[in-house]
Each structure stands twice: as C-alpha cells, then as structure tokens.
C-alpha cells in the first residue's frame, strides 16, 4: 500500500551548515508520525521541504505517490500546514481568516460557511469569531493557526510544534484539539521537542538530531532499544574512568551514560535488581550523594543516542 508520505534521502544545507542529512521515513494512512528532537535538530527544515517552502538539495518527497518535484500544486493541495509560529492576519477576524484561506483551496459558498462554523466550534472560537485577531490571547491565536491548516480537510496534516511558547492551560486546550483531530483518523506528521506529547499522540516516532534520524519505530520499539529493566541514576564524588572499572566488575549492570560525578545505568530485572546494584557500588567504596530509580523513557533513549538531553 502506498504510504501517504514517503521521504527518501532528504538533504538540505545552508552554507556550511548541514540542516538535514539524508533523512528517510514513511507515514502510512491514518498514522500519527512524530518527529522528536531538540531545537535546531532539523525538524522544521524537513517540514519546510515537505510543505514546498524550501527546495531540497537532494532526495525525494512523495505524497500519495506523487513527487513534489513533479507536481508541487497537486501535492500541496493535499497538505494542511500548521507552522510553528502563528501565521494569521491580525487585522482580520477568525472568520475572515478562515474564509480567505478556504478560498485559496477553492472552497466557497455554503460549503465554506459550514466548514468555517465547524472549525470555529472545534477550536472553541465561535464566540469571538468576528473579533479582530489582534485582540486574541496567544492561545486563541494558536488555535486559529491550527484551524487554518485544517480548513480544506487535508490528506496529510503537518503540525510543526503546535504547542511551543504558550502557557500550560492554552497548551492543554491545543492538545485536546490535536487529540480530536487524531481520533478522526487523519494522517499527521507531528514535530515536537516535548516528550510527553510525542508519547501520548504518536503511533510511531523518529528521533532526529543534527539533521539525522537516530532511531525510528513505535514507542515500545524505541524503548526496547534501551533494554528491559530500570534506570538507576547515581551522583557522587567519582570520576568517569574509575567508575567504569568498578562497573566492569558488577556483572549485568549496563551503562547508559557516565560522566564525572554522574552515571546512568540500566539494571536488568527491573526494581528487584536495584538493591544488589547499589550494594555493589557502595561495596566498591563509592560515596553517593543522590540515587534515582525510574522506568526508562524516550528522554533516556535520546540521551543514550546523542549524549545530551532533549531540552539542551
């Protein structure tokens, strides 16, 4: 079955800076595919190329089997782009904004009016629909920004960090709307650097950093890359190299990340293995100031893959 979106060997540089470096992935119909990575990882550049805003240096993008290089207009007709920064006309009302963008996609008359009302209701802007957008709060503008990308019922929705830079309450509202969209069975490419959003919405994820996909798969598949067990993080007065030597003598404990004064270890057998592991560390003469035990998540995988945290 032809994927809704297929990206092959995508590359883009800006001078000496390689922003996207050979990215490949596919998104199947009805799938929510997450693009998880820190700021500057290449997420927005990738989305911009898919949206036709940037021309790739190399590689191919196909939507429903049609290459954007061959028929950009046909591809763009199927896309609903929700940019990271709010891109609306502040002088116009929400209804006028939606009417204008709907007109661009050929919607008119009763069909357009009905669709506008439906979306205003969905994003909770019906009561303020005729007020100028410049009078809206940040969260309301974000909701309108989202609605504008959905006006023509796109085949593929590109959501570029839709919750970035807003307060928790507004974020919650946006996430509810996104959830309602995803429940409708639409195909979505969702970029974020918020781990919990990626884990709660996405069927599959790609972890991207420095323009490359480091890992790809379902949440379970990705977590499995860390291995089964609990994560034990210890902090104390130790150096990296001596700690490794001690670790080598402690059997099944696996290194996730070790630096001077801090180590993250995977303990096989879950929480039951933590006690013996700590006994081993103390027994080796280490002085530990802080101990943290938790279940591994994607943040830990990202740390393992890149050596840095997602929000660095």
């Amino acid at each position: 079955m032809t994927p809704v979106l297929a990206v092959e060997n995508l590359r883009k540089s800006f001078g000496d800076l390689v922003a996207v470096d050979g990215v490949d992935f596919e998104v199947a119909e009805g799938e929510i595919f997450g693009f998880l990575g820190p700021n500057g990882a290449g997420k927005t550049t990738t989305i911009s190329m898919i949206a036709g805003l940037l021309r790739p240096d190399d590689g191919e993008i196909r939507v429903d089997g049609v290459s954007i290089a061959d028929d950009a207009r046909a591809v763009k007709r199927k896309l609903g782009v929700v940019p990271q920064d709010v891109a609306v006309y502040a002088e116009l009302s929400a209804r006028e904004n939606l009417r204008f963008w709907g007109g661009i996609y050929g919607l008119k008359g009763q069909a357009l009016r009905e669709r506008i009302e439906e979306l205003l209701d969905q994003v909770g802007l019906s009561e303020r629909a005729d007020d100028p957008v410049k009078q809206y709060s940040g969260g309301m503008k974000r909701r309108l920004n989202l609605a504008m990308g959905l006006i023509h019922r796109p085949r593929l929705i590109l959501l570029d960090e839709p919750t970035v830079g807003i307060d928790p309450q507004a974020r919650k509202k946006i996430l509810e709307i996104v959830e309602s969209i995803t429940r409708g069975g639409q195909t979505v490419l969702y970029t974020t650097h918020y781990l919990e959003e990626a884990e709660s919405f996405c069927d599959r994820l790609a972890i991207i950093d420095h323009g490359r996909i480091l890992a790809e798969g379902s949440i379970a598949q990705l977590k499995a890359q860390l291995g089964e067990g609990s994560l034990l993080t210890v902090q104390g007065e130790f150096l990296e190299q001596p700690f490794r030597e001690i670790l080598a003598g402690l059997g099944d404990l696996r290194e996730v990340e070790i630096t001077d004064g801090r180590a993250m270890l995977l303990v096989p057998g879950g929480s039951r293995g933590v006690g013996p592991a700590l006994e081993g560390l103390y027994g080796a003469g280490l002085h530990l100031d802080d101990v943290l035990i938790k279940e591994p998540n994607l943040e830990d995988l990202f740390l393992k893959l890149t050596g840095r945290e997602l929000r660095d």
Binding site: A51, G52, L53, A72, R73, A74, K76, R77, L79, V81, P83, D85, V86, A87, V88, Y89, A90, W101, I104, Y105, M148
Partner: peptide
C-alpha cells in the same frame, strides 16, 4: 508574521 510563507505552502505557485 509568516503569512507569506504560509501562502507559499498552498497550491498557489
């Protein structure tokens, strides 16, 4: 404000 870029992501050339 990003509306020009948004316009260029539509089917308009």
């Amino acid at each position: 404000q990003g509306t020009l870029a948004r316009l260029l992501s539509t089917p308009f050339s």
